[in-house]
């Protein structure tokens, strides 16, 4: 319990520090101006979200293999936290795109794949609500989670090679491409902060799922008696 509180406190402090760094330490970008600062938040959230989905995938694989409910808890925690971060990405993206590209949305590979990814994990959580029995729910959603994760590179490839008409946008060429050293440092610090936040949220969600399972178990015992 205390460990969780400390982790959460560290995560919050790191996020505050990264917000400070991205507003006051990182230099203003020459062509885009102040709006570029959203990147420290946007790209860092995207990375943290993908890591969370990776954690979900690992949980799914291990559940199918080992059949321990702990892995199912890890799976659902990863999916929910990943979905939260991806939602942040999908909201901050258009906020940046509108002043810079002049449009809210474009069918660019990265945007669209993130959106499809988001849809896949919404379906994953939806599937979980529609299966009553815990073991069955864990197995079925794990299998779907595995299929969904395998699909992600295919979605990205398909959209990148057949749907992106324009060359890669200015900044999206990768955060490492020709970035000012201070910007780079601030960016990696933000990515680190977001990852700590992501881990802390997953730990919290995992504990919640564990409690929920125990409560369900107790409720059933009372019913039987």
């Amino acid at each position: 319990m205390t460990k969780r509180v400390i982790l959460a406190a560290v995560a919050i402090l790191l996020v505050i520090a990264s917000a400070y760094a991205s507003f006051y330490i990182a230099p203003t970008e020459r062509t885009m101006g102040v709006i570029q600062r959203i990147f420290y938040f946007h790209v860092a959230s995207a990375w943290a979200g993908f890591s969370a989905f990776l954690i979900c995938f690992v949980g799914n694989l291990f559940y199918v293999w080992k059949r321990k409910q702990q892995y199912d808890w890890l799976g659902v925690s990863g999916a929910e936290v990943g979905l939260a971060f991806t939602t942040v990405v999908l909201i901050t993206g258009p906020i940046w795109a509108h002043p810079v590209w002049g449009i809210w949305w474009t069918w660019d590979a990265r945007l669209t794949s993130t959106f499809v990814l988001w849809l896949l994990y919404v379906s994953y959580l939806l599937l979980r609500t529609l299966v009553e029995e815990p073991d069955r729910r864990a197995l079925l959603s794990s299998l779907f989670g595995i299929f969904a994760f395998i699909d992600v590179p295919l979605v990205f490839g398909a959209i990148r090679w057949w749907r992106t008409q324009h060359p890669q946008p200015v900044i999206m060429g990768g955060p490492g491409s020709g970035l000012d050293p201070t910007m780079k440092a601030v960016f990696f610090f933000s990515a680190f902060a977001m990852h700590v936040l992501m881990v802390s949220l997953i730990v919290e969600r995992y504990a919640l799922e564990k409690m929920q399972t125990e409560a369900d178990f107790l409720a059933r015992e009372v019913e039987v008696q």
Binding site: V116, L120, S123, L127, D151, V155, G157, A158, I159, W162
Partner: peptide, 12 residues
């Protein structure tokens, strides 16, 4: 709901 997002690559 499960199938259509998964089949995005095929459709594209």
């Amino acid at each position: 709901l499960l199938l259509l997002p998964l089949l995005t690559p095929v459709l594209v």
